[in-house]
Design a protein around this nucleic acid. Sequence first.
DNA 1: TAATAAATGTTATATTATAACATCACACAA
DNA 2: TTGTGTGATGTTATAATATAACATTTATTA
Lengths: 165, 165
Amino acid sequence: MQKSKVLSPFKPARHKHQECLQSALKAAKQHCDNSGQRLTPLRKRVLELVWENHEPVKAYDILDKLKQDKSSSAPPTVYRALDFLQEQGLVHKIESLNAYVGCGKPDEIHSSQFLICYKCGSVAELDNSEIRKLLQINADKFGFRIDEEMIEIKGHCQECLDEGK
Amino acid sequence: MQKSKVLSPFKPARHKHQECLQSALKAAKQHCDNSGQRLTPLRKRVLELVWENHEPVKAYDILDKLKQDKSSSAPPTVYRALDFLQEQGLVHKIESLNAYVGCGKPDEIHSSQFLICYKCGSVAELDNSEIRKLLQINADKFGFRIDEEMIEIKGHCQECLDEGK
DNA sequence: TAATAAATGTTATATTATAACATCACACAA
DNA sequence: TTGTGTGATGTTATAATATAACATTTATTA
């Protein structure tokens, strides 16, 4: 079994973002159909906005963009959609940034480890099963039942380190 | 070398909190003396308030208590003190709760893993060197330089699981 | 002691998030 | 087909978290 997966890479190099977005939306649709949940136009729109690029997006930035569609949108509109998407595993919240990123693998059970670049703001999402296992072992020592894992590693990505030279 | 340390335990059982607090304050004083930083009365007071119990404390709760000393205190008072204490490694911020906990080991270099109980709110701080190592290995694959690690594991502590039966 | 730097005070405001209630839209039962 | 119930969205207000900007005080040191 593969120990470490890259669920989503750093600044995906010259990729066709349109395809990338479409594939995420398709996976989302599929996922919701399977779970009997409704990916309504609003929820889909918010998901699109989260996926606009590969950086964490802020709720109020999403709101500003929604207002371009429909000027009356208000905070609850965004937060409800984000809550739904998080419950479905379609987006993750980066707690240390109060921002949201899309998850392209809503159906793969995983614990996420995020690498977050201070400088450019881009994010990679990893799933290392050894880390998950170690956390489990440590939690077990305390009789602690894990419900949710948040691992956010901040620093500088290669590209930004190179630029800094 | 010890692989996994408990930097601070869950709901420390029947302990003499006064001693525990004094020891933290003493370590803080020592630490600041060594680093040439000033643990002013205000900063010390905020540190005390953070240490009042072994649960994460909110900035505005600290502010309310400060106001009992001196009614004119305002948010920047608290946030500045917390910023200072974080820089010195005397408190950690739990990002997923927007709350702060004291760290009794400001001088031990460590990466913290927090176990956070949803139900009772208590927190344990661990430092597992294997996890740190694995994160480093994974970061290295990307040429990513780690500056800060945030690991917050949420779930239910033994005591709360037992009660729930 | 004057000059400087560091810390704190103070007022205002920015940012993030939720409560509460109204309305709408859709499934499906009568 | 029309009610009727549920879930989704709209709307207004406000709560909770955090920072900017500038004034004043306190400590350090030249």
